[in-house]
Design a binder for these strands. Sequence first.
DNA 1: CTGAAAGCGCTAACAT
DNA 2: ATGTTAGCGCTTTCAG
Lengths: 364, 364
Amino acid sequence: MRNRFRPQAAKTIVHGSKNPGQRRERMKKVNIRELAQVLNISVATVSKALRDSHEISAETKKKVVEMAALLNYTPNPHASSLRKKNSKTIGVILPKVADNFFSLAINGIQSIAESKGYHLLIYLSHDKFINEKLIVADCGSGRVDGILISISGDTETAEHLRQLNEENIPIVFFDRDFDGFDTARVITNDRECGYMAGKHLVEKGMQRPVFLSISSSLPICKERAEGFEQAIRESGIVASPAYQPVLYCEGSDEAIFEQIKTIISQQDGPDAVVASVEKIALQVYMACQELGIHIPAALKVIAFSTLETAPILNPSLTTITQPAFEIGKTAAEILFKGIEKKNFDLKGEKIILPSRLIERASTQ
Amino acid sequence: MRNRFRPQAAKTIVHGSKNPGQRRERMKKVNIRELAQVLNISVATVSKALRDSHEISAETKKKVVEMAALLNYTPNPHASSLRKKNSKTIGVILPKVADNFFSLAINGIQSIAESKGYHLLIYLSHDKFINEKLIVADCGSGRVDGILISISGDTETAEHLRQLNEENIPIVFFDRDFDGFDTARVITNDRECGYMAGKHLVEKGMQRPVFLSISSSLPICKERAEGFEQAIRESGIVASPAYQPVLYCEGSDEAIFEQIKTIISQQDGPDAVVASVEKIALQVYMACQELGIHIPAALKVIAFSTLETAPILNPSLTTITQPAFEIGKTAAEILFKGIEKKNFDLKGEKIILPSRLIERASTQ
DNA sequence: CTGAAAGCGCTAACAT
DNA sequence: ATGTTAGCGCTTTCAG
């Protein structure tokens, strides 16, 4: 293992150095008592002065703040959290971070959190309920003041969330919500967009357009698929008996890739596909490249995606683009309402930020 | 504002509901004392039992664990952190999250953190030193047990990091390091790759290849640029007086885009460019598309990038691809050595994980 | 306006 | 093997 690396600087040898025993003992960080001692005032006064309490004289405040800066004092967040019963932290639970949508959403969330002086604890469920459950449990007991979650693909119960609700920790869904749990959700108009995608392909004269879904339980996929199916039904396409408007690709990335190749290369296969998520779109492109299937001549492609590179793909990709940043931002804003206003009720809040279809060469 | 939204479910009204005063008071989470009380044993025993201490009988342990599960007890992390003086949390400071490199790096970091039972606090500096400084200060006083940082583009001092070092919080650089601060760093072979890029273009017969840098101070850019220049020098290209092998694009995204357009469209402009970072590559493609410059016929392009879509771009993009996941993973592994082994010295640790040049159509 | 003191929930040293 | 107790560093009544 080690020989993969090429250390370029010799490792400094410190064992047996001059000052044994003082290395690595976490250096005594100055605490509020010491700060008070130096100033010859009480800790209570210091504490209040630092929090800019009105019951402290301007003069004292100044002295305290200056000395704090001088001694590089910063309050211990754990002590403070323990006492105040809040953490100034929110938990963000995502299926993955490698999807551009989630990167953008994190930016939106971060922009709000930063302005509120909150910290962001990020968790990845890797799209597995089993992980999500552990993570949610970890967020309990005051570790976070609120949770923003995009549910995993195979979550089928909300018991874990209910648990947290017991503790009165506000939860907001963003993008991927869960029907069986009533709390605020910030999502996009998935059904409508599925319909738009279907309509767009029908208008292009497609006869066997197929929606490639990754989950039959995930609301975003279900909604998109249903909207799509409705468009197909309304179109009056005379279906051959073998034609299925919605197909499922499940399993590992490799498995999905194989399924896609099978689907698009078969006799009487689709003449157009809708990728339900970004990953599927890339795999369709890769598959077409590998199999020599021409987009859009032999296969038209639309993808639900926020891919920045959509306009410069070969060919450029028609997308239904979610307002990812805004979704993250809005979800965070609502969460903070729930955190700050003790009597703000998140139940029933449902905000829908619309996505847009951007036509490019892949459906020309 | 509100009318952009379409609430689909009526908002449940709870004001003045049956049980006033108990709503939204954070419900009394059961704590260790209550758990002990219920079991008729001491808190010390409960604490030890839950931590699987050897000085507790198997029988007692079982009882405790079962009751804890039943009452849904989870220890308060702040109390525990305060007492134990650790947080089981590491801070990750990134310039941004929208670059694919950092998404992948986070995955690598997360994979290690998860296996160690650590939490991940993520901070975005937006590539500004002023933010970075605040963030680093925030990480002090025990909020995190260690820091993974990819330095911002305009950081020119390490005072803020030194401050943390006083507290003996281990710090590991990944990808973007800072020369003036001695700690572990996990980077890639930037100079060598710059050289490879230059060599590759020279071999293709290019006469005026240009390296597009985004910073003259950021080590990764400097190294890449220097390697590139060396390749050009060695190539024996007879430079016209106007030819500059390294050009800088700085400012906002829009400003950079304009600069790029100017550079590639000018008389005797470059016949090839190397994009120092992912963002520049996309902008070069966009610019070429807009200006009708053909890649690779009129302009060859190489990019330092981990873009997944590189193979399906138009044309497919020759990249120098960093092992982003491994860099994150390795950095986290080293950090944990620093956290766990009190006498492990991070100074002088320097691990270089090589990138690879992958030739595609943009330099054909 | 300032200070003394209680205690948030937990862990660990020190009994028993 | 189990229990008692003293804090970790801070905030917050409550008194002065």
